[in-house]
Amino acid sequence: MSTALNTKNKIHPQKMYLYAGLGSIVMMFAGLTSAYIVKKSQANWLDFDLPKVFFISTVVILLSSFTMQMAVKKAKEGLQNPYRGFLTVTAILGVVFMVLQVQGFMAIQANNIALTGPRSNSAASFLFVITLLHLLHVLGGVIAIFGVRFKSLSAKNIAENTLPVELLSTYWLFVDILWIYLFVFLQWIG
């Protein structure tokens, strides 16, 4: 009926595990942004502009995806030091991104719009919760970068097993694309 299957020709099970996991993260944010749309059409919705700092953080996370791809490239070429260097730069850019996001929260509050608490409006609360959850996903990525980087210290030839860094870069690219979706959503759609 069908040709014999050979497991070795297919994608690695752990990659499949990650892809399915990304699917579940997509559903989580789909749930939140759907709730946002429903809520926006109801009474008491406060319209306000996104702080400018979110534009900068978008550029930073885009840049970090580039450095992450460079890290994968260097790993495949077996170049240890440039590989670790790009990982470190990516992690630093990730931390910068998170700091900028927090700056964004503070900028909103500086405009006298409460994110939480009794004076808060759902519009600002939604932005806060969605962005905060994304930030936590970036934080997870940064921790994973340090984990992979630490493990690479004991590897003789980095090009022999690039699976961990490939998984890492897929995840990192994903949180990047996720942020761009959220940014476009919050800025122009939502």
Partner: peptide, 19 residues
């Protein structure tokens, strides 16, 4: 759940097509 999906899709023995 992620494990079940990855295992079923990627770790079937030789000849075990989805159908």
């Amino acid at each position: 759940g992620l494990n079940y999906i990855a295992t079923i899709l990627n770790m079937r023995t030789k000849g075990m097509s989805m159908t």
